[in-house]
Design a binder for these strands. Sequence first.
DNA 1: ACCGCCGGGTGCC
DNA 2: ACCGCCGGGTGCC
Length: 876
Amino acid sequence: MQKGLYKYILLIQYSSQQTSSNVSYFADDPVTETLSQAIRGTGEELDREPDTGVLFGSLRGSVVGLRYYTGVVNKGEMVSLVRQPQNPYDRNAVMVANVYGSQVGHIKRELAVLLANIMDNNLARVEGVVPFGVTNQFTMSVVLSFWGREENRDAVVRQITSRSFKLQSGPTGTHTHTHTLTQLKNAFDNLFENLMDDKIGEREAVEAVCTPLLPHQKQALSWMCACENNAALPHFWEVKGELFYNTLTHSSVRERPRRVRGGILADDMGLGKTLTTIALILSNFHHGKPLCEPVSEKSSPEPKASTTARKNPEGKCVSHSSLSGKSLVSPVEAASSQSTDDPAARATLIICPLSVLSNWLDQLDQHVRADVKLNVYLYYGSERNRDTHFLSSQHMVLTTYNVLSADYSVSGGASPLHTVRWLRVVLDEGHIIRNPNTQQSKAVLKLNTQRRWILTGTPIQNNLRDLWMLVAFLRLKPFDVREWWNRVIQRPVTQGDKTGLQNLQALVKCVTLRRTKTSRVCGRPLVSLPERSVRIEEVELTQKEREEYELARTEGRTTISRYVAEGTVLRNYADVLAILVRLRQFCCHPGLLGKTTTHTGVVAVTPAELRERLIMKLRLVLGTGSDEECAVCLDSVRLPVITHCAHVYCRPCIAEVIRSEQEQARCPLCRGQIKASELVEFPLEEEEEEESNLLENWRSSSKVEALMSSLLRLRSEDDSIRSLVVSQFTRFLTILEIPLREEGFKFVRLDGTMSQKRRAQVIQEFQSDAPGSPLIMLLSLKAGGVGINLSAASRVFLMDPAWNPAAEDQCVDRCHRLGQKRDVVITKFIVKGSVEENMVKIQRQKQDLVEKAFGTKNPSERKTSRVDEIRALMEL
DNA sequence: ACCGCCGGGTGCC
DNA sequence: ACCGCCGGGTGCC
């Protein structure tokens, strides 16, 4: 009710302004925003399961009062229905709005009673399509279709027939071919692949960029400039007489729709997204002209590029491009950007995770000529300058997602960064904003900017919803409003509609550039990386180790086979994981077992005891660095919490489950009852005293010996080769420090517990080629997240297999990337006849399986595969 | 005629 | 609205 009221106020506000003036549909004016928000609000409420709903049927109704409103609709156009519970003439009022949010009219009174009932009780989503368009100035037909959960079908049908309306079964629209789920999965997985064709020519960066761009980077620059300057109609739009017609929503507008000024640069890590973006910023200022030029043009050495710089009439340096003509801004493009550029918008805002902030500064240093006066301001730290004039006058402002969202919530939306009119906003690692419910995402959406870019190496993990946020940020009209996204893209695609998928593919294609390390242009690889080879080194346990291992294994097998027999594997999942972790630890070094107890079971006497045990389990599941996934978002667990039934989720994910299901909230894995007050999180603490313990009672292990002999051999053969030693267990890294020191190796260590500052130091130290710099980096598998560069290393020792092979690949990618000069050799240590061998087998199977199902968050499907996995691991 | 029929006034929710 | 609906005028054929 409260929310309804809010919506209504927004609408009133909107209509009063709306009738007095023509709305410019494509401007980001607050009026349009307001109504979009109102509609978006409805969308979100009904959005819980936009893809699982079934069609109950449809019926013909009429829209009345057309003459009072200005919203126009065409034949076949979709309209949105918005409840107006506070309408003074009828509390059942249902407003009809077109794709751009302009009100068209109301649903006729008798029908509105019915709709109000269905909508207010959330029995179905109601969607409207106008079959004939406007035929007179008073009323028009509308076809309403009802979508909902199967269990509500009867109620909806009853409501409709009891009010003597006739529900036609089946869709009234055209039937399209459908895909099987597998076809769909494949298509979706390939959504971001093969986007490469004819994406335009190449373009040189301006002189101010001193690093020569590689061919694929020139291509990206050319594409990005075209995206920012191009005035061509966006996809799905056609000229129809005087008007512009959208082929998906069947709507048309008088004003020329603008193409999204920006897009998604989704190149693989290491292909130089940062450099390309710097080149864009310097090369494509207002009207496609360079941002700034070297100060000392005369005294500077010969230009590095083959072609010479020219002067345009204003004396500004023009891009010394290939001059083939194809890459230069055409007069038409220039004219159009001239007419729409806001001259006050001059600065580019870069938003990135803290971990890559220093990378931006480094790269600016490295790629921008020293005599170019580029004003770059780092908007970070408590002393940051919040003056908006100051910020607006910069060439670039760098900040982090955290600073942005913190400012945003403190200022109630009027933060300095939200006040500046930006020329361009760049989201680095843009997939961070894939969840629209986070503060970060909300803050990002509210930025005022002419051009928008998303840089990401992983555009979407496994869910269409993730993509919506990116589309919304880009303001890819009209899909930035959830209802249209859901109706035109999300629902059709997840229900296997072929044209829906084609539309999605076209949509992604027109805003995305993605190349992988293996992409080829004109038959040649993008970048030539050195070879990379993987060898598995089998490790034999000693007699003593084998005995200890077998003891633990037998014990574990007994417990797990009992769970399997009882069918309670998932209920005791934390225990099962604990057993597996213990076995994996045995394979590495017995000292890893630490204070884990053999006691299992969640039955505890006191709350404090229970809490202690839950925390211990949580530590086992996560503290080891193994990549556990959250059963809600199916992604790596972030902000982990453990339920009383001992299952681990992201806090926001499980909080959302509890919020939406209230008292009936159940654990998604075991269906046990869960409460918000009973979620236990990882306490931030301790555990250092044990290190001395390790030292005093030092004993080696087969795996430690295997590593050491490799390292020693390597050093004797070539002492310039640097190595990454990777483990999921940070304690194992600690153990390895002892023999490394003993043998006189200089090493550094990088793990998840270190501050950003310390990490940057360590990376710099390792990457440095100064004499006496470390030969070895001890690295925890998940440390540092994406984007760090460890190209100084060319050997990788993976000490223990990961659940998720992608995590290993990512880790290897940190050295097998641009800048790597040597062939990369990866050694995987696997203990013979152990759980590790089985893990490798499962890794292989996983890769074959199309695991990345999306939309289908079918827990039972996943459950069986998990149980099977565990049985395979334990050879049960 | 406590009807039917005609034609003018009228019009979202 | 080239409708439906309302309510006043009217009334054999």
